[in-house]
Amino acid sequence: MKALPASFGAVAAAAALAAPFVLERGTLNDLWSLALGVILASAWNLLGGFAGQVSLGYSAFLGIGAYTTALLSLRGVHPFLTLPLGALLAALFSIVIGLPAFRLRGPYFTIATIGVGEAVRVSAASVSFTGGSGGLRMPAGSFDFQLNYYSMVVLAILSVVLAAAVRSSAFGHALAAIRQDIDGAEALGVHSTRFKLAAHALSAAVVALAGSLYAINFQYIAPGSVFDFRLSLSIVLMPIVGGVGTVAGPVLGALVFSTLQIKLLAVPALRDAYLLLYGGLLILVMLYEPKGLVGLWRRLVARARSAGSVRGPEVSDAG
């Protein structure tokens, strides 16, 4: 069962790496966005899916990565050398937020993260060293699309591999225990706060890396762009639509969202319908299949199996 999605993933990764030799710039841009979506969704899923701690404040980490890169590049540091520092700062910030916030459970944690996200956005727009609401422009001459494309795709592949590794590790099992029954997990000796903090820091660091690459490719960042509502929304919606708590779900969700985005931008009448679409999708998923596309697929497979087993029980043994 596990081998099938893994081999699909390997083929997709190889195709994405070979793409610059075959495809045009426009399509590559779309693939770049897809890779960004895969990274953000997979990283969010580490905490939101595996550990079940739904946070709506992830744009803060994206912003920390993007601003670290822009600010240091403007002071003469090579943009790619700023990546580790952005990731480190985001991880530290995630711990500062997490220490108090993880005392809250479920929806209360979620509401607190909305507050954090808003506070960071408001602060970035009102302090002076970030360039205020006007934003920052990266230094001229630091643009190389081929390099930007490859770095984003490689990071996307690494995030999926990381998610798969976490899922099957002892760390991943501890997170799953926290999601299923936090009191039970605590009783069995899982230090829940420590694991939540670790998952938060890990996902924050990955999101900050994506933020740095975002700044490098767009060359210009502002509170309106890195803290864009559409972006922080899709960070949450991609894994939810795809299937929270799975490795394939966030990737599927990113695929759905970037396809929708491309199709929407092509039709002028629908360009302003993204909130309707995102909201509608969220309502449908929550009402009919809270486990997302992966859940739907599993249900269909289970139904096909049971239909098969009615006709001949020996078939089900083979599966």
Partner: peptide, 13 residues
């Protein structure tokens, strides 16, 4: 929580 979040987005649009 997420369902009502979806309703909010639809209203906004």
């Amino acid at each position: 929580l997420l369902l009502t979040f979806g309703v909010w987005l639809v209203l906004q649009n």
